[in-house]
Simulated scan of single mutants.
Amino acid sequence: MKLTKALFYSTLLVFSTLTLNTTIYAENSQQYSEEYIQQQIKKAFDAYEKEDYQTMLDILLPLAEQGDSLTQAIIGDIYHYGKGAKQDYQQAFQWYEKAARQGNAYAQHNLGFMK
């Protein structure tokens, strides 16, 4: 019985945390559709392939600033590797951290190597 209660409360805690994180994300960002974000990321990578790094950054930065974890991780890469902006490990760490706090596994992985 105690194990069942513990499992129930643990599940409830996880569910409420996920719901809260989603709510916070929605309140802190514009409601970009997943399709729109993917289109912007494709445009950014097209710019990257043309070595138009400033355009890439201009496309991704607004999405990252609005809280999209995937674009935050990509901005982290831009600063980490110095493609599109001057290499800046502190900026890379900050962007990876923002994405990691939203559960982005790639950003969490990169943070682990930076610490």
Score class of each variant (00 low, 15 high):
residue 37 I to C: 10
residue 37 I to Q: 10
residue 38 Q to W: 07
residue 39 Q to R: 10
residue 39 Q to N: 15
residue 40 Q to A: 07
residue 40 Q to W: 11
residue 41 I to Y: 03
residue 42 K to R: 09
residue 43 K to Y: 11
residue 43 K to M: 11
residue 43 K to Q: 13
residue 44 A to M: 09
residue 45 F to E: 05
residue 46 D to Y: 08
residue 47 A to F: 03
residue 47 A to L: 03
residue 48 Y to V: 08
residue 51 E to I: 02
residue 52 D to G: 08
residue 52 D to L: 10
residue 53 Y to F: 12
residue 53 Y to R: 01
residue 53 Y to T: 06
residue 54 Q to K: 13
residue 55 T to V: 07
residue 56 M to D: 02
residue 57 L to G: 02
residue 57 L to Y: 14
residue 58 D to N: 15
residue 59 I to A: 08
residue 60 L to V: 03
residue 61 L to I: 14
residue 61 L to Y: 14
residue 61 L to S: 15
residue 61 L to F: 14
residue 62 P to L: 12
residue 62 P to N: 10
residue 63 L to K: 11
residue 63 L to I: 14
residue 64 A to W: 07
residue 64 A to S: 15
residue 65 E to T: 12
residue 65 E to H: 13
residue 65 E to Y: 08
residue 66 Q to D: 14
residue 66 Q to G: 15
residue 67 G to T: 08
residue 68 D to A: 14
residue 70 L to P: 00
residue 71 T to V: 12
residue 71 T to M: 12
residue 72 Q to R: 07
residue 74 I to V: 11
residue 74 I to C: 04
residue 75 I to T: 10
residue 75 I to N: 11
residue 76 G to S: 08
residue 77 D to H: 10
residue 77 D to M: 04
residue 78 I to A: 04
residue 78 I to F: 04
residue 78 I to K: 08
residue 79 Y to D: 01
residue 79 Y to A: 01
residue 80 H to W: 01
residue 81 Y to V: 04
residue 82 G to N: 06
residue 82 G to Y: 04
residue 83 K to T: 01
residue 84 G to K: 04
residue 85 A to Q: 13
residue 85 A to I: 14
residue 86 K to T: 12
residue 86 K to C: 09
residue 87 Q to P: 04
residue 87 Q to M: 09
residue 89 Y to V: 01
residue 90 Q to S: 00
residue 91 Q to M: 02
residue 91 Q to G: 00
residue 92 A to M: 04
residue 92 A to I: 01
residue 93 F to W: 02
residue 93 F to K: 02
residue 94 Q to A: 02
residue 94 Q to C: 01
residue 95 W to I: 06
residue 95 W to R: 02
residue 95 W to M: 06
residue 95 W to D: 00
residue 96 Y to V: 10
residue 97 E to L: 10
residue 97 E to P: 01
residue 98 K to T: 13
residue 98 K to R: 15
residue 99 A to E: 05
residue 100 A to Q: 10
residue 100 A to C: 10
residue 101 R to A: 09
residue 101 R to N: 14
residue 103 G to R: 03
residue 103 G to D: 06
residue 103 G to T: 05
residue 103 G to L: 05
residue 104 N to I: 07
residue 105 A to T: 14
residue 105 A to L: 15
residue 105 A to C: 09
residue 106 Y to S: 09
residue 106 Y to N: 04
residue 107 A to M: 03
residue 107 A to P: 04
residue 108 Q to K: 14
residue 108 Q to D: 15
residue 109 H to A: 08
residue 109 H to Y: 12
residue 110 N to I: 06
residue 112 G to F: 06
residue 112 G to V: 03
residue 112 G to I: 10
residue 113 F to R: 02
residue 113 F to L: 11
residue 114 M to S: 04
residue 114 M to G: 03
residue 114 M to T: 00
residue 114 M to V: 05
residue 115 K to W: 03
residue 115 K to L: 09
residue 115 K to N: 11
